[in-house]
Deep mutational scan, measured.
Amino acid sequence: DVEPGKFYKGVVTRIEKYGASINLNEQVRGLLRPRDMISLRLENLNVGDEIIVQAIDVRPEKREIDFKYIP
């Protein structure tokens, strides 16, 4: 289970102007929005990149997770 405040290694699977889709595994994925990137710009991400993200909002009833990137 993903817990708010914990850090996870994820893989960038899609990049859109509203954010990047991050997969932690086949069943768990979430969104990294541009506003939640401290020192990383969306255009510097590539599909397949592995990054460390922090879960900031977990809504299991909607199967949604928001991530934050902290270098």
Rank of each mutant, 00 (worst) to 15 (best):
I65N: 02
N23M: 15
K17C: 13
G5D: 04
E26M: 12
Y69G: 02
Q27K: 13
G48W: 04
A20D: 02
P34Y: 08
R33G: 03
D66R: 15
I65P: 03
D57L: 13
R41M: 11
I52H: 04
I65A: 06
L24Q: 01
E61C: 08
K17E: 12
R35T: 09
G30F: 09
N23P: 01
G30I: 10
E50L: 13
R63E: 11
R63V: 07
Y18N: 11
R63A: 12
Y18C: 11
N44V: 07
R41C: 12
A20R: 01
R59W: 07
P71C: 15
R14V: 08
A55S: 03
R63M: 13
I38W: 06
V47K: 02
P4R: 13
Y8V: 00
F67K: 03
Q54L: 15
E43R: 09
E61P: 06
P60H: 10
A20N: 01
L24W: 04
Q54I: 12
R33N: 03
I65Q: 03
R41A: 11
A20C: 07
P4H: 06
E64G: 08
D57G: 15
D49C: 07
R59K: 08
R29E: 11
I56Y: 12
P60I: 10
I15D: 00
N46E: 12
R59F: 06
K17R: 13
R33D: 03
F7W: 11
R59M: 04
E61H: 11
Y8D: 00
G30Y: 04
R33M: 04
G48S: 02
L32W: 03
D36R: 04
V58P: 04
V28Q: 08
P34F: 09
E16V: 08
N23R: 15
I56R: 05
E16M: 15
D1V: 14
D66C: 09
D36L: 05
F67S: 00
R63C: 13
P4A: 12
I15L: 07
G48E: 02
R63G: 15
I22N: 01
P4E: 11
L24E: 01
P60G: 10
E50M: 14
P4V: 15
N46C: 14
L24N: 01
R41Q: 11
I52W: 15
I22H: 02
A55I: 14
E26Q: 12
S39E: 14
G10K: 00
Q27P: 04
D1C: 15
N23E: 15
L40E: 04
N25G: 11
M37P: 02
R35N: 08
K68P: 03
G30Q: 02
L40W: 04
D36A: 06
Q27Y: 14
V58H: 05
K6Y: 07
S21Y: 15
T13M: 09
